[in-house]
Design a protein around this nucleic acid. Structure first.
Lengths: 340, 340
DNA sequence: GCTTGTTGCGGTAACGTTTGCGGTGATTGT
DNA sequence: ACAATCACCGCAAACGTTACCGCAACAAGC
């Protein structure tokens, strides 16, 4: 059983003894076509289950109704919720989504984007890789007139549409919360300084300390942003553990791993050291003690990014005005910081 | 700044004063073309950054080098790892991936698949929705000659390519493990009976009980497959809690929620009731007690499914022979079942 | 000299769709 | 009765690419 020929407009035209253009117009209710002809065409079309060939359409109109998602890692609660939000909005608006994970590789980011350009994607939703150092493939999108919305991991310096969380403010809120619980010597687990979000969160952290008249100790800032990184750098954390009474981690899983490490070393959380995370995955209520964090709405961010992209694509105007939507994270205090 | 015209083969032909067919052949090193012409064409092509138009190619060859992923929910650790595996293999093989989540809706499953057919996707990777009751849209794929590999949630009765976990055996292993720890009255948290996987797991559970000479008590089988479902059915679980000494949950998050519920009601895990889950997400080592489970290799399953699909697509032969790859889950005993 | 073969390239059609233009036959207006 | 209007439809080109066929030029073989 070989590939059965998908029925085309020409087939309909042939069996009805009319021209392809008439069929095309009849299908889209063009006023030039008589009611009778329309009826015949539409009936036959639906009875043979005619479906327009999207490739031909895309070729003709240079519009594919497809958008590309470029994301560092799919297996990440935050990112997967973002994708989910994107996909739901896209589906309801009649767009298809192409997905590429870069695995934090710049080279893969470049080639994936190029692939999608080759497929004549209508627009991009991008969260840039941690290791991307050259940004020409991203700036080129703008000069090529392809609409882009960056989310979460945006591209510094490049004017663009953005959907981000207020990382600075979120970190400030988190740190302030620790201070309000009586912490005075607060450490911070951070990520690669190349990422804007980690810089912002660090700034929020130091700002909150200064505002409270507390000293910023560089030894208290450790670069570790994952379960693995904590384990690899456990000695650093253990070294400062006796001195500190608070810990702000750049994300939840890092916070949780730190808590487990500290607990195993005899520290009581939150009595000895209060710990707060960032992101609010599904983990926070499952661990013991439950993890305080600042909530990041991934689904909403994805949905909003998709809506923004649709606006950009459908406005027709490119490159004129950029939008930025900032989501302010919300403090979710739980047991891991309850000291009062 | 309007859309800059993407450079085409015709453009190259025009500036070089040769025909489009020559350019096309020169680009793919056709023997008919002289070395000199090839050199000129290839040099110009790369200097103006020529990229073939995938839509035109797809239209011409009815092959898009794109595959479609249809999945119930993205925000699910297991599924996101599967997607990750798919995407990595696809990327390395030069395929693009289109993604659709059905949100467990049959209607959305149908229309997403139809959308992707309209885009002339080369093949499908599908995990069917929980609520799908009619399967014609899936059987049609076979008659349309479109290669499909089902993974995890396969389509019963429909002969097809499959990548699955041995749910029966996994459940049997899990239940046996509870028995080996001295449990005699073991309850089971299950999912919608329409899903093959839940039926298989239930069968594995009852089989293990019977093999050990233990009685199967229908009251001990509760339909609850998520955090929310447990909370909604908490009274049922609490009712049987005094009688049971073991619990096998259909997935990890259900197991964890059950543990928390039981703990709040004064039960000690694993002393009073030993609990085991299924799936091995990232949660198992984070909770206290750490959760015993049977490990499901999502990434490998995705990768294998993609490889199988590639074989099917590139063999050219459709519909002749179907493959099935079964992954046997591995017991991961942790604290939640340690009674001996 | 004529055939045969080779090398290198161009023309055309085709994939499926849309669209501007034009053309037919019939109806209307004067 | 003649032009103007109208309703309805077909032609052909175009989107970018490739496969098939063919053709010119030139070399070689007899």
């Amino acid at each position: 059983m070989n590939k059965p020929h998908q029925v085309t407009i020409k087939d309909i035209a042939r069996t009805l003894g009319i021209s392809a253009s008439t069929v095309s117009r009849a299908l889209k209710d063009h006023p030039d076509i008589s009611a009778e002809t329309k009826r015949q065409v539409q009936q036959l079309a639906s009875s043979v289950n005619y479906r327009p060939n999207t490739l031909a359409l895309g070729l003709r109109k240079s519009k594919t109704n497809t958008i590309g998602i470029v994301i560092p890692e799919i297996v990440h609660h935050f990112f997967s919720t973002v994708i989910s939000g994107i996909d739901d909005v896209a589906y309801n608006a009649g767009y298809n989504t192409m997905l590429c994970q870069t695995n934090e590789s710049e080279e893969r980011e470049r080639s994936s984007i190029q692939n999608m350009i080759d497929m004549r994607i209508d627009g991009f939703l991008i969260s840039v890789s941690k290791n991307t150092t050259q940004f020409d493939h991203l700036t080129n999108l703008a000069t090529d007139g392809i609409p882009v919305v960056f989310f979460d991991r945006v591209c510094e310096g490049l004017p663009s549409n953005r959907v981000i969380t207020d990382d600075f403010e979120g970190a400030r809120i988190a740190t302030r919360h620790l201070i309000s619980q009586g912490c005075k010597r607060i450490a911070h687990l951070t990520s690669a300084s190349s990422l804007i979000i980690s810089k912002q969160r660090r700034d929020g952290y130091t700002t909150a300390l200064r505002e409270a008249g507390l000293e910023v100790n560089p030894d208290y800032i450790i670069e570790a942003d994952s379960r693995e990184a904590i384990i690899a750098n456990s000695d650093k954390l253990i070294t400062i553990a006796p001195e500190i009474d608070g810990l702000f981690a750049i994300n939840d899983s890092t916070a949780i791993t730190a808590i487990q490490l500290l607990q195993r070393n005899g520290y009581n959380i939150p009595r000895d050291i209060a710990v707060i995370g960032f992101g609010d995955g599904p983990l926070t209520e499952i661990v013991s003690p439950t993890l305080s964090t600042v909530e990041q709405k991934g689904y909403e961010m994805g949905a909003e990014a998709m809506r923004m992209l649709i606006r950009q694509m459908e406005s027709g105007i490119i490159n004129t005005e950029y939008e930025t939507r900032v989501f302010t994270p919300i403090l979710q205090p739980r047991e891991s910081t309850r000291r009062l």
